[in-house]
């Protein structure tokens, strides 16, 4: 089945437009301001290698462009993660939930309340979970691995697990 080619309807939503701009800007500025030159030997728009591990454990490596969101990448590179990004990056669902290594997670831009609100509804929430639509690719992410949470077989089990957290 044909996937969406582009996830740009987000410009129709005020809230997310503001979001996209602020996050995007910060990331463009970042290599020059906050990070060591060795880590950011790149100009804006540079290529970054990313690895995705899908629900069934298979690994796909893609070359992404700085400034794209991880949701953009999943859609544009046809990573075939069914149901990913249902609200098209407007912070209205949690279907682009991704799990990061702790060392990577700690370097990500801080999370806004609205993202955490949605993430709280995600399946298999972990301490290093983020929404893919809110994570913008930066040069320092080169070589990073992100995991798609596993599909949940039985929701009651999930609910119990959640309650025990």
């Amino acid at each position: 089945m044909a996937l969406r080619v582009c996830v740009r309807p987000l410009i129709f939503s005020n809230r997310v437009r503001v979001w996209g701009e602020t996050l995007g800007l910060r990331n463009v500025i970042r290599p020059f301001s906050r990070h060591h030159a060795l880590l950011s030997n790149s100009s804006p728009g540079s290529k970054v290698l990313l690895h995705f591990i899908n629900q069934s454990g298979a690994k796909t490596s893609v070359t992404a462009t700085e400034g794209e969101s991880l949701l953009d990448i999943v859609i544009n590179k046809n990573l075939q993660i069914d149901g990913f990004g249902a609200c098209e990056g407007t912070l209205a669902c949690s279907t682009c939930h991704l799990i990061f290594d702790e060392s990577v997670y700690e370097r990500l831009e801080p999370m806004a309340d609205e993202e955490m609100d949605m993430l709280d509804l995600a399946y298999g929430l972990t301490k290093t979970s983020r929404l893919g639509c809110q994570v913008i690719v930066a040069p320092w992410m080169n070589g990073m691995t992100v995991r798609v949470p596993q599909g949940i077989k039985d929701q009651r089990v999930t609910q119990e697990a959640k309650n025990k957290q």
Binding site: A2, R4, P9, A86, C87, T90
Partner: peptide, 14 residues
Amino acid sequence: HPEVKNVINTFTQT
């Protein structure tokens, strides 16, 4: 909540 209704785009493709 128009953002939630974005799922209609995918349903339409289906």
